[in-house]
């Protein structure tokens, strides 16, 4: 019994890479004629996945600390809208800072309520999701806010460094910083210890409230960056940007081998988890499925994959 569970954990550690390879090959064969393997399409997958990747890296910390953040999609939407309005009315720097401020405010609120008031993060962030989306719709009256600032659009969206797409750089940077923070810093260890056994962490002198506050804050701030990335790539701020991304981000984290129960985290796994989610989205679009069918197939694939990656 122990033997089989150990084997299971080993499989879990590498499962994401196998799934990624299998689905990639499958699409390469089935969708070859639809241009799946063209370098342009492959780069597109990376570009479209950038927002999910960035949010999923932060979500890895949240889940490792045995919490959850369902508000990130809403925060991204609100940040895109506020960023776009500030940009239009006040300028580039104000636009960026305005977007980030949304992350700071919502993240502080989430953190305060979860860590210090003690409300389950699932409830706090579910409520906050509605608040954020509602606010974004309210201030724009449901209209998209176009962004005409080329510098902004280049930094957060279509810009390239040589041939290298800027969005990819955002992804890689997030993954690198996340990986260093989780594996090389004291903060990473505190997050894992808190998520693994909060009582023991508290006995060890770890300020677990502070840890929980910080992961919630980081998650929201990163979600606001993702909102700016949406705004830059699509050259508009809109309340709908990021809608439903919390599910994709959570799926990416769990697919990547992070335990849903806290105490373990894998950033590289998360990266591939996010790519897999993007891959599936892309494949389904190329296959020409209507949106309704895409949603069904995507939902089922994610459930299946998470079931496979589930901790025994």
């Amino acid at each position: 019994m122990i033997l089989s569970s150990i084997k299971k954990i080993d499989i879990r550690a590498t499962l994401i890479y196998w799934m990624f390879a299998v689905i990639f090959l499958l699409f390469a064969l089935l969708l070859h004629d639809d241009g799946f393997l063209q370098s342009n399409n492959l780069l597109n997958i990376f570009r479209q996945t950038a927002t999910i990747t960035v949010m999923a890296v932060a979500m890895t910390f949240v889940i490792s600390a045995a919490e959850i953040d369902l508000s990130i999609g809403g925060v991204a939407g609100l940040a895109s809208v506020v960023g776009a309005i500030m940009l239009r009315d006040h300028g580039l720097i104000q636009g960026i800072l305005g977007g980030l401020a949304i992350g700071f405010v919502v993240g502080s609120l989430n953190g305060l309520l979860v860590a210090y008031v003690g409300i389950p993060s699932f409830l706090v962030t579910l409520g906050m999701q509605g608040v954020a989306i509602g606010f974004a719709a309210l201030v724009t009256n449901y209209y998209p806010i176009p962004i005409l600032n080329d510098t902004f659009n280049a930094i957060f969206g279509s810009g390239t460094i040589g041939w290298f797409p800027g969005l990819l750089l955002w992804s890689f940077t997030a993954v690198l910083i996340g990986w260093i923070m989780l594996t090389k810093t004291t903060f990473g260890r505190r997050v894992l210890a808190t998520g693994g056994n909060r009582d023991a962490a508290e006995f060890n002198g770890i300020n677990t409230k502070n840890v929980k506050f910080k992961v919630m804050l980081i998650s929201s701030v990163v979600a606001s960056i993702a909102g700016l990335l949406y705004a830059g790539r699509l050259q508009t701020g809109r309340y709908e940007w990021g809608a439903g991304d919390e599910l994709s981000a959570i799926a990416a984290v769990i697919l990547g081998g992070t335990s849903l129960f806290g105490g373990s985290g894998r950033i590289i796994g998360t990266f591939f988890g996010a790519l897999l989610v993007g891959l599936i989205n892309n494949g389904l679009i190329l296959a020409g499925l209507p949106v309704s069918q895409q949603q069904i197939v995507r939902g089922l694939i994610i459930i299946l994959a998470v079931a496979l990656a589930k901790k025994k």
Binding site: T186, A193, G196, A200, I206
Partner: peptide
Amino acid sequence: RQGLVMEHSVKQNILATNLSSLSHLNFL
């Protein structure tokens, strides 16, 4: 319940009480 994170390694557990002495500028 209070002393250890059972799923973590011996190393990680020993680390937990000594994070500041075993790091430099918060880097392990």
